[in-house]
Amino acid sequence: MNEYLQEIRALTMRWVRRLSREKFSMLFTLVQPMLFWLIFFGNLFQRAADPQVTQAPNYISFLAAGVVVMTVLNNGLAGGVDLLFDKENGFLERLMSTPINRTSVVLSRFLFVTTITCLQVLVILGVAWFFGVEAVTGLPGIAVILLISMLFGVGLTAISMALAFSVKSHGDFFSVLGFLSLPMIFLSSALVPLQAMPAWMSMLAKFNPMTWAIDAVRSLILSGWAEALPKVGMVVMIMLVFDAICLYGSARAFRRAMG
């Protein structure tokens, strides 16, 4: 057990160290492009978006939940990239030739990605607060938002790692990611509420776990516990199933790749 902790700590610190070395990427990680979404689109569409449709006092308070979950999506789906590079340059092989628990490398990645995601979510909520969006459920609500982010992030990171272990080249990796992420965003309630979508679209959006996450986060920010609790219960259940499926798939891909 001690050895397991030693490995995971060392491997997680490696990701932290790398991030601190890559100054440019650190800037982009912490001042996430998603922030610009919030600031620019939030203010830009202020006039265009109809509060009757968004059911929110202003567009930025509507958008905040979407931006939170989009951040989780982006981070999660990109979570496997570094493992992909490790696999391609042989570093992964070096790590796996040491007497570590087979799960340590993957686990360190989950830890790292989840931590970064939570920090970013906090930054986004902070910026939203600066623009006058205050979560009506207060700090406990924010804790629940972080929980939902973690649950969604784990499944997404698992998808990304599964992809990293299975693809032949990293071109494939990025094209599959691009293919996944845009429809995930547009077929969700990130930018527009379901009621404002054409029927077929809102149908599809209902099958998107992201929609459920956004609706729960949004009611935690805008509506209060009475409306939020059932949604939170629902999304936790959906996320547990989603995570189970993703983790199963990624464990299989890992075992196939690592022999």
Partner: peptide, 14 residues
């Protein structure tokens, strides 16, 4: 055992 792989298994940032 110890192992030295064929490709340079190096993390550029470390």
């Amino acid at each position: 055992i110890g192992y030295v792989p064929q490709e340079r298994a190096i993390d550029r940032f470390l």
